[in-house]
Amino acid sequence: MEVSGLPLSASQRAKLASAGYTTLSSLSSISSQHLARDLNVSNEEALQILNVVMRTGRFSDLAGASIVAGAQSAWDMLLEEEHNKHITTSCGDLDKILGGGISCKEVTEIGGIPGIGKTQLGIQLAINVQIPFDYGGLGGKAIYIDTEGSFMAERVFQVAEGCIEDMLKLNVSQLKDLETLKEKMHPNTFLANIFYFRACSYTEQIAVINHLEKFVSEHKDVRIVVIDSVTFHFRQDFEDMALRTRLLSGMASKLMKLAKQFSLAVVILNQVTMKFIDGSFQLTLALGDSWSHACTNRVILYWNGNERHAYIDKSPSLRSQSAPYAVTSKGIRDVVSNCKRIRMM
């Protein structure tokens, strides 16, 4: 949006233009002192200009200012993406191929065969989203929708312990804080910050997802929603496959909207199925072709020899590449290569 469209006096607009401030985004991250100097006006006047910019900025649509209500320029989107937060997976290699971790504002689908570590990754993210700002985290809360009954509190406790242990290690230099930190960070606090819903049928699953918008608007600190798994209740007898497709795509669009509206990450875990392709059975993610378009990002977990690997199968912004990860007693971590292991011994 242009500065010329702002409800400012003509002389103020002229001063802004001659100083090179032509778009709103150019004024979005500037201090009043800086602006006062550039425009050669008083600090108060600069502050008043910035207030106008704030009020009319991206939060409202001036009549006629934008052709499509709620539209964003690509420039604004780029800026936003640079500020987009990520939730670490606790595995450096995995974070690297994900562009820093699981992206907020986006829907990421993660699939793989039983025992590959889908639930483990889900639990890890529900813990890691709570890492405080001071430690580079989001200091947020998590919603966990469990459809399979594999989310076990004792495992969440272990992963929380592992996460706290790693944070304390980072902090050894500041021994003063250590005791207060230890008090503040009890695994039970992490458990209490996960809103856990158990859905025992597909109707319950849909009810919870429909309820999310209201719930999140009352709990604005929620930064991730994990669904473990989206699949289980939808693989039972659905006589009406069109109904199934409709329910699934309705769910996907609700989740996509939720991610954008509240700047939170949605992680959907999916199972695999055997598909009869070209005369042989092959592994593919479940729920069929129409579902495969529902999520923004798709990550596939698989065995590569004795190592677990993750592969970016689909993403608008990430390259298709794979990285190894490990499931340890503390949670998801980097693979410790053999030579390192030997050196440690």
């Binding site: 919603i143 076990m152 509190a153 004792e154 969440v156 406790f157 039970n188 458990l191 209490a192 996960i194 809103f195 856990y196 819903f197 158990r198 859905a199 025992c200 319950e204 009810a207 919870v208 309820h211 719930f215």
Partner: peptide, 14 residues
């Protein structure tokens, strides 16, 4: 089912 989340701490010990 209710639409109130459960407290995981109460699940311990499993």
């Amino acid at each position: 089912m209710t639409l109130t989340p459960e407290n995981l701490v109460s699940h311990l010990p499993v």
